[in-house]
Amino acid sequence: MTSAISVTDLTKVYGERSALSHATFEVPLGTVCGFVGPNGSGKTTTIRMLLGLISPTGGTGTVLGESISHPERYLPQVGAMIEGPAFYPGLSGAENLKVLASLGGFPKERVATLLEKVGLEDRGGSKYKTYSLGMKQRLGIAAALLPDPKLLVLDEPTNGLDPSGIQEVRNLIKDLASEGTSVFVSSHLLSELEMIAESLVMLREGKVLFAGRTKDLLAAQIATLVAQPEFTVDLNKLLDIAIRHGREASVGDGAVHIVADADWGATFNRLAFNAGVTLSALTVTQPTLEETFFEMTGE
């Protein structure tokens, strides 16, 4: 077994619409994989199928090497928070965790440890309905950690958290990953995951747009050179030079924008100088993964 999750042509159709359509991807074992897509793109639907909550319309999948048609074979080693936290409002946070501990046959003693791990040790005795959104989210993460999971599946775990809360979740994920836990974490914001995810699966309207290493996606990014001539009359001359050298370029905001890597900057500067144009500024803008993603998803 080399992959934590592997799906082939996984499909879920609701009535006329496909919530997920022929998704094929793999999540390597022992890594953090980001699952990114705008709202309604099918992330939760995929996660529900991986956990045996809904049955696929088509396709196959395995989790920890076992087929998703037999969730009882792998779920004891999987922790999950699906579509936000859901608990009994009249029970305390600790009681809620104990319900799930009884259910899974885990020792009750783990509850206190986990409450501490997510920073709820002081409020574990309060009723769930008195919790803030951030506390609810953290209780959800604690519940997902109950089995000391080999694979952790978190569906938008940072929803409703403030920046420091988001940072805490990120750190927690990093810690778990460094201990060897595989993490499959979804978000509608790529920027939240690009720093911690070694690999990414990107969804849009139920289709997988990209599945692979984050590094490879970064390599696919194309930078833009922005060259500003000393005199605006030279703009067209610069544009000409770029195009003659086989570059895609355009004029805007008193500068020439050229699709090229930073390496080409020096060459371009020389070419401009030789043509008698002095540059007053030459900058390289590297798009963020977010921008690359939006480029790909067309938003």
């Binding site: 699906i82 936000g84 859901a86 009994y88």
Partner: peptide, 12 residues
């Protein structure tokens, strides 16, 4: 409450 999904993950 949506708690059924938690129950089923712990007891499929």
């Amino acid at each position: 409450l949506g708690t059924l999904r938690n129950l089923l993950v712990r007891q499929p």
